[in-house]
Design a binder for these strands. Structure first.
Lengths: 145, 145
DNA sequence: CTCCGATACTTGAGGCCCTCAACGTCCTGA
DNA sequence: TCAGGACGTTGAGGGCCTCAAGTATCGGAG
């Protein structure tokens, strides 16, 4: 591949940092936030995918969550029991059921997104020009996957 | 792509990138790797924590996995059924049970770590000096949390 | 030494999620 | 028309989670 004999390209170190970050710290933070709102991981993910005013089919949600359609039934059932989403029928194809957020669902979704998008304090302490640098490097490193 | 990056500190954008990365792409990659080895998320985490030749107590493993001790029983049971770990007794305190990797466990752990530490191709395409920059920025941004 | 509050691990109930296989219903193209 | 897809659902089997309760064991106060 490339010459990494002496300097050992730092890609592995970066990857190690990101891995530890993703699978431990961010994961805990994320789980803390959603359980605070009474949501499970797939439920929170579903709430993120379901945009207010944009009903989608169960199948589309399954694709968005990268899981088997049979899981969606239960997940949507539980969200429905809490009055967060409603099942409807799609015009033109009686096989598909559409999912739409209720008022409550949209409100909870907003609270969820607000909380999730709050960056940790460490990032803010970095000088703004370095923040820009970091942002651009991240984009370039991860965009083409 | 919106041009609000001038007024709003880019910290939120960075956080957005990291969040999407952690909770979707890296997560899928991670899960694919471990299910390939027949491991669940907690099992893989446990295998990472259990270093060969360094037996630890169940309680310590529970702390390492940030979960309730009652979960550890089942997780270790299943790892034990596969011959990956062994329960022993701690000298000096008959309450605690020590956990130690078997040969097979150590081998699987090595395969796991090898696979996980392999960075995605995108990172390698970045020039090495920019890799170093990214590494350093990540460290400084995330170290003090 | 005795007793009693911690500590280590286990068990069980109640839930959520996952995979996979098997349906019933509903399209759709030859 | 009719066979093969596609959509959503159900059920079995399994793993993990939380919380509460139970069994040993430890260790310090009296």
């Amino acid at each position: 591949m490339t010459a990494k004999a002496e300097t050992e390209a730092p890609a592995r170190e970066i990857w190690g940092l990101l891995l530890e970050l993703s699978m431990s710290r961010m994961r805990r933070r994320f789980l803390h936030t959603i359980t605070d709102l009474g949501l499970s991981f797939p439920q929170a993910h579903a709430l993120k995918v379901l945009r207010p005013g944009h009903p989608i089919a169960m199948r589309e949600l399954a694709d968005g969550l990268h899981c088997d359609p049979s899981n969606i039934t239960g997940i949507v059932d539980r969200l429905g029991d809490r009055g967060l989403v409603e099942r409807g029928s799609a015009p033109g194809d009686r096989r598909v059921k559409t999912l739409m957020l209720t008022e409550e669902g949209a409100a909870l979704r907003m609270r969820l997104l607000d909380r999730l998008s709050e960056p940790p304090p460490g990032l803010g302490k970095l000088p703004v020009d370095e923040q820009r640098q970091l942002r651009d490097l991240l984009r370039r490193a991860l965009l083409d996957d």
